[in-house]
Amino acid sequence: MLLGVLLMTAMAEDNPDIDLLERARDGDRDAFGELFRKYEKRVFRVARRMCGSDDEAWDITQDAFIRAMEAMDRFDPRYRFFTWMYRITANLAINHARKRKRRSEVHFEESYSAEGQQVTRAQLSDRAATEQLTEAVGRALEKLSPSLRAVFVLRVDQQLSYSEIAESLDIAIGTVMSRLNRARARIREELGSMLEEFE
């Protein structure tokens, strides 16, 4: 017990976010507000990128902060706090994505195929082409496995380094590299001729 208290005290001194989290857990509304505003957009954004809908992103955001407060005692001080938040968020998002995939895989496949044909060879303005491309990337991303998607989102959207991604997802850097490479290759493959138009 004493050791735990000392450990948390040391963590709080090294990491101001832990101090905020601890105070928030103890009922300090201001501390929670400060912590939430610091991470709300990052958490929401990762969740939204991973799941594709605002509703799910809100659910994940909420759960991520609640989990963080409830699991604070299990925080490993060797890691950085923001990677811990990413890990919680990514894990929640992966679980959401897996559940959603089981529910709507067939529907997604059909709609994607139809839309993909509409886009190709269209005479689009540069701006319209960009919009179409990003939408296509989003759809291609949905076809990736959640674990590949998580690496892609953390790298491309959040622009984390490989080591940060590895820390966030608790995987080796080599795994980060291979997953990221596979994710990019599959997205490019999905975009196909559309990518040529874009070039």
Binding site: E40, R49, T61, Q62, T134, V156, D157, I187
Partner: peptide, 27 residues
């Protein structure tokens, strides 16, 4: 491609974040 996708993101209004903040703390 990646930059376009990264920039193509719109956050919900700030008020929604504030409501979420209250909700989480309350829960």
């Amino acid at each position: 491609l990646e930059e376009s996708w990264r920039n193509d993101f719109r956050f919900p209004e700030g008020s929604e974040f504030r409501r979420m903040e209250d909700r989480i703390f309350g829960r």
